[in-house]
Design a protein around this nucleic acid. Structure first.
Lengths: 334, 334
DNA sequence: TTGTATGCGTTATCAG
DNA sequence: CTGATAACGCATACAA
């Protein structure tokens, strides 16, 4: 038997209104009745129904988080950060694994709509027009995490262009001239980012008068596997690369792995740098140098932004975070 | 403006009852009215309120998943599997990151109770009496994933004892005699598992007449960091170990990392085997040999079990899954 | 300080 | 086949 506010009211000889007031600290009751009611609540081990509450309050204390991938460390670190601030604020998070599928994403959006979530975070996902249209109809605050959009939706992200520039420059200053890049999905980057990382890579090369060839870039997806196949392809095309700029750490890990299996010593024969600085980097062999985009901060900022929007309905500004090179052992001077 | 069933009913000149019937495919209406109503629904882009529905149906199509850790790959792979079957069934999952804290766990249990979730999965978490008591009061189906309990709660787990035995035996048959083990939290294992992995380790040693010393075991937690500090401590105590049996892959990864930084070649100087076979194993340098516990299957089995319980309220049986050694390159013959 | 009554958006039980 | 209407569990405006 699970009790209702009525049960509590009856046992305490008060009205449900009074119980409700006490439950919500609204004032307007004597200390005595408060104690009486609180006692009954304890006795019955009564917990108010969140759904009934949601029905009247139009607020479910639940948010949705859309992620394209649950096996990516970056994403789960995002999830971690979001969950943390949500819990602090008293909200729960529903995880929605979209697998980058348009259809699954739409289905999830509808589901979240039915569940009447208070807010929504899209992590590392490209905001298609279809999604955007639906979201405005839902009328819930949204924020983009690690993504950018032309649509008027607040985002929290890094300056991918500059970060990639910095990373590439780092390699150059270490004396590397033959630098390959393994990038993720081309279209997704172009659409979902302010300026893609590849551009930063190219700019750095150009600024330091290093010739650039399209064949030095390998496009794939964003997973570890893409790092391993990426390296192989790249090395087939241009064997004398001395350094690899990996679009993200998962790809970087793939490169490390492929290099190991190919018998290519890192960093002796090949330097590798990644991006994001996920927590696994430092445990790689060798530890992976990476451009940190302070994604922990990013996730928390995004979540805080969203809750702010939920509470004040005020439009908020975007946020572009800083980056920083974390030197480890996967890069050496040429 | 977000529409209600009333709006739909009015526009279609029918009663809300009829709309509801059509919405739920209950029959008892003409094709004509069905089309009419469906049209209006499309026009308005109406989606029924899940919370209102939940209030009457006493079913929220939402489950809770308690995880002790969101940065562990094993856990997120569990989450991945659970989310996948939940979504197939039309349920959403609320992630609850307990951080192994008793207090946070209780808070989460209460929260989930308020949210009136349909079911609950505890992943890799020790079911304390306090939790158990609360859960029976909640009256929701629970299943333990990768854990065991004396309380009458169904669980889906591996035979940790045998798996560890097999892993150790594998090392022994490769000619190793000086094998160290890095284990997780001692108390948690004893309480949360049928027979802890350490016991399998000891039994194998004993069966093959290899003397066992307590100093060969290092206890820590379950993270990568524990693997790196674990190896250091172990090597301090007994420097001529030729192999390490890591209680799980995260620890194994830590061992690999520490070995690299210590200049100890794996597998030439030190063999390492992990457990769980998380997807990162094959990308390590060297690729980490591991005892696979088919945790993908485990997660899905647990989720399916829980949904079965939700739907039929029938008590279900436990499930103990098989294991298998996945040979890679981190172990070599002595 | 407290209680009554109504609404929140559905579903379900009755009648018709 | 269809329509009132009463729940579901809570919050709140309005009375008292």
């Amino acid at each position: 038997m699970t009790y209702t506010i009525k049960d509590v009211a009856q046992r305490a000889n008060v009205s449900t209104a009074t119980v409700s007031r006490i439950l919500n600290d609204q004032g307007g009751y004597s200390e005595k009745t408060k104690r009486k009611v609180l006692n009954v609540i304890q006795e019955l081990d009564y917990y108010p129904s969140g759904i009934a509450r949601g029905l009247t309050n139009k607020r479910t204390d639940t948010i949705g988080v859309l992620v394209p991938n649950l096996t990516s460390s970056l994403i789960t670190e995002f999830l971690n950060g979001i969950e943390s601030v949500a819990h602090k604020i008293g909200s729960s998070v529903i995880v929605c694994h979209t697998e980058s599928h348009g259809i699954k994403t739409m289905k999830y959006l509808q589901l979240l709509h039915e569940k009447r979530i208070d807010g929504l975070i899209l992590a590392s996902t490209l905001l298609k027009k279809e999604y955007y249209d639906y979201i405005v109809k839902m009328r819930v605050p949204v924020v983009l995490l690690s993504a950018y959009s032309e649509f008027p939706v607040p985002y929290v992200t890094a300056n991918d262009y500059e970060a990639a520039y910095t990373g590439t420059k780092y390699l150059i200053q270490k004396g590397h001239k033959d630098i390959g890049m393994i990038s993720g999905n081309k279209e997704e980057w172009i659409a979902g980012n302010l300026i893609p990382r590849v551009e930063g890579f190219k700019s750095a090369l150009s600024d330091y008068n290093i010739p650039f060839y399209e064949s030095y870039i390998e496009y794939g997806k964003f997973s570890i596997d893409d790092g391993v196949t990426g390296l192989k392809h790249l090395l087939n095309r241009v064997p004398d690369l001395t350094a690899i700029f990996a679009e993200n750490d998962e790809i970087g890990m793939g490169v490390l792995s492929a290099a190991y299996n190919l018998g290519i010593k890192v960093p002796e024969k090949l330097s590798v740098i990644g991006m994001d600085d996920i927590s696994l980097c430092k445990f790689m062999s060798p530890p992976l140098t990476s451009v940190s985009l302070s994604h922990n901060e990013m996730a928390e900022k995004a979540a805080n932004l969203m809750f702010k929007m939920i509470n004040s309905a005020t439009e908020v500004s975007n946020c572009i975070l800083d980056h920083q090179i974390i030197e480890r052992l996967s890069v050496r001077s040429q």
